[in-house]
Each structure stands twice: as C-alpha cells, then as structure tokens.
C-alpha cells in the first residue's frame, strides 16, 4: 500500500473516557428531544407509592413500623431502579436493529465503550427520576432519620444497585431482538423483583412459599440496608440473608454485574 499514512497503534485495553462520554452524550440529547423516557421510570414507582402508601396504608400493618410510607419508600426507590431495565434494553436493541451498532463496531473504538455509554446515560436519567421520587416521598411523609452521611450512603447504594441492574437491561437488549418481548420482560423484572421482596410487606405477611424467595431476593437485602441507613425501620426477619445483608448485597450485585457486563460485551463483539 502506498497510502498507509496512519501509524499502527495498540488497542487501548479499556473503553476510552472520550468514547463513553460521546455515546452517553448522544443518549442525553435524545432524552431532551424525547422526554417520555423519564415519565416511564418515574411514574412506575410513583404509582406504587400512591397506591400502597396512600390508598392502602391504613389497611396494612407492619410490625415494628408505625409509618407505612417510610417502610415502603426503599422498595419504591428500587422499583424505580428496576423500571429502567426495560427502557435501557430497548435503547440498546434499537441501536442493534437500526444498524448503529454495526457502524460503531466498524469504528476503531473500544468494544465496551458503546455499552458503558448507554449505562452511564441511563444511570443519569435514573438519577433524575430518583430526585422526582424522593421529592414525592418527602411530600407523602417519608423522612430519613439518621443524619446526612447515612442518608447519602443509602442513596449511594441506590446508585450502585441501579448501575448493576442497568447491565441486565443492556444484556437483554443485546440478546433479544423483539421489542415487544423486551418491553414485557422489562415490565416483569420491575414488578416481580420488587414485589417478591420484603419491600412492601414484612416477610411473615407474605404467603409461605414466597417467603424464601423474598428473603433470598437480593433486592430485599438492598431495601433493608437502605431502610436501615435511612432509619425507616430496623431490618426484620431471620435467616442468612437477613442476618448478612452486606455480604448478600456484595456477592449478588458483584456477580450480577460481572456476568451481565461480560456477556453483553461478548455479544457486542460478535453481534
């Protein structure tokens, strides 16, 4: 070749910050033109908060907690995080179908930058949703009781949880092509994982066969850790997950992140 004017370069091992920011910036620009995306992830938890915390609150008695809105708030927040799984999956699947992933893959950019960019953008979008949910929570009577640092630590945990479940969305989007299926699966994730937890009822109020599922559901551990940090009722229940919430959170979220991110990037490489 006589036109070889570009010196060869080594592939950077990780996604470059520039590339990730470019992709995340693109998603945020899209959000500005199509803010409907925000409605979905804020409406879902808000409906739960209003339905359970306002309409049913007098009918539901939680032992050891006098304020039902405070009891369910952590669960509502996690539901908001889980509600972002479907939209993330759809955003990724649309990029695959529209040929954008092919274009990105034909560029000399890192193989993970596009997916990380999606996650970063969706994390920011979820944070906006979180602010709205917190505002409504305060309006409905939720209060943190343990001071600034534990409260912030609780929100830090929400961010980590959201980041992790968004990778589930990315994997769904890379693995499934039918948008309607993705939408149903995403909706199922948001409902099943939040309701089959100790987020809205204490374990002993749940049907017997669901109790072990709710106890071992990592979402329960995250919820009770947040409740603890926000002073919204001490963790209840017995058994390994209830007694070792940090360990369960660390292992389950760590594994989930590892598996979903590795599988997603592998799928992206071979799409």
């Amino acid at each position: 070749m006589t036109t070889l004017d570009i010196p060869p370069s080594a592939a950077p091992p990780l996604a470059s910050v520039t590339e990730v920011l470019a992709i995340a910036g693109r998603r945020l620009r899209r959000l500005r033109r199509n803010p409907g995306r925000l409605v979905g992830i804020t409406l879902n938890p808000l409906i739960t908060m209003v339905a359970l915390g306002y309409l049913f609150s007098s009918a539901i008695q939680i032992p050891g907690s006098t304020n039902y809105i405070e009891f369910i708030f952590a669960g509502v927040v996690m539901q908001g995080a889980l509600a972002a799984v479907g939209p993330t999956a759809i955003a990724v699947a649309l990029d695959v179908q529209g040929g954008l992933v092919d274009r990105f893959r034909s560029l000399p950019i890192s193989r993970s930058a596009v997916l990380i960019g999606h996650v970063i953008a969706d994390l920011l979008i979820s944070m906006i949703g979180l602010v709205v949910v917190v505002a409504f929570g305060l309006l409905f009577g939720w209060r943190p009781h343990n001071g600034v640092l534990p409260t912030l630590a609780g929100f830090g945990l929400v961010v980590v949880f959201t980041f992790t479940v968004l990778w589930v969305g990315v994997l769904l989007g890379m693995a499934m092509s039918n948008l309607e299926t993705i939408e149903s699966v995403g909706g199922l994730v948001a409902v099943v994982f939040s309701f089959l937890s100790t987020g809205f009822l204490s374990v002993d109020k749940l049907p017997g066969w669901i109790q072990p599922i709710a106890q071992w559901n990592p979402v329960s551990s995250v919820i009770s850790a947040c409740r603890d940090l926000w002073g919204n009722g001490a963790p209840t229940g017995t058994g390994f997950p209830a007694e070792n919430p940090s360990l369960v959170i660390l292992v389950s979220l760590g594994l989930l992140f590892l598996v979903t991110s590795v599988l997603s990037v592998r799928r992206y490489r071979n799409a």
């Binding site: 470059s16 520039t18 590339e19 920011l21 470019a22 992709i23 910036g25 693109r26 620009r29 899209r30 033109r33 199509n34 529209g98 040929g99 954008l100 092919d102 274009r103 990105f104 034909s106 560029l107 000399p108 950019i109 930058a113």
Partner: peptide
C-alpha cells in the same frame, strides 16, 4: 461502512450525528 439501513440516529440532527462520530474517532 454503510450498511443496508441508514445507520443514523433519528432523534439527533444530521450535524449531531456527524459530530458524534468525530468525537468517537477522537
């Protein structure tokens, strides 16, 4: 590479699409 579908972001402007690729290409 120009695939069978025009691989451009519908919600972005033409300019934004091109700037995005320029940023990705450093």
């Amino acid at each position: 590479l120009a695939g069978q579908n025009a691989a451009v972001d519908e919600l972005l402007t033409g300019r934004e699409n091109l700037v995005l690729l320029g940023r990705l290409l450093h």
